[in-house]
């Protein structure tokens, strides 16, 4: 693929802000619009932008392929573990067992914050992996 300076400069300046916005959507998911899926897709689109501009090898130095695979595979396990912890320590499956104060603040969500972050990392890793294997098929 022919690389241009415009794509190079714009992606290098824009991708950190897209990543930051994705993590903002994850952490504020229980207070404002956003949540696990939206934040995960936003994170994945930042990584895809870097794939397009820099090639896959340079990006995989920052996000190693093995850890992305592990995040995608163990994400659902962590979600299930949080739900069972609610069954053990709280009232039922997925119930919030953390006793937190301050509704309307970041830790006020209890386990909702934890579940949002787990879902976001899993969705982001999954979409990144789909696009990475599409890229790899072209390069071969």
């Amino acid at each position: 693929m022919k690389k241009t300076d415009i794509l190079d400069v714009v992606s290098r300046k824009l991708a950190p802000f897209i990543l930051l916005f994705g993590f903002y959507l994850l952490t504020y998911g229980h207070l404002s619009p956003g949540g696990g899926f939206q934040g995960g897709v936003t994170i994945a689109s930042a990584v895809i932008l870097l794939f397009l501009a820099k090639g896959t090898e340079r990006v995989l130095e920052v996000f190693p392929l093995k850890s992305v695979h592990y995040t995608e595979a163990y994400g659902f396990f962590a979600f299930l573990l949080t739900g069972i912890a609610g069954l053990v320590f709280g009232e039922g499956f997925l119930s919030s067992f953390l006793k937190v104060k301050g509704a309307g603040a970041i830790p006020g969500g209890g386990t909702i914050l934890l579940l949002n972050i787990i879902i976001g990392l899993k969705v982001g890793a999954g979409i990144t992996l789909i696009c990475y294997y599409l890229f790899k098929e072209r390069e071969e």
Binding site: L25, P33, G34, G35, F37, Q38, V41, T42, A44, S45, I48, L52, I127, C131, L134, R138
Partner: peptide, 22 residues
């Protein structure tokens, strides 16, 4: 419906466009 709007902007304009161009 700002939640749906965020999803539509992220998936519709970002990821699916990329897949179609591919």
């Amino acid at each position: 419906a700002p939640d749906v709007a965020l999803t539509e902007a992220a998936v519709g304009a970002g990821v699916s466009t990329f897949l179609y161009i591919w």
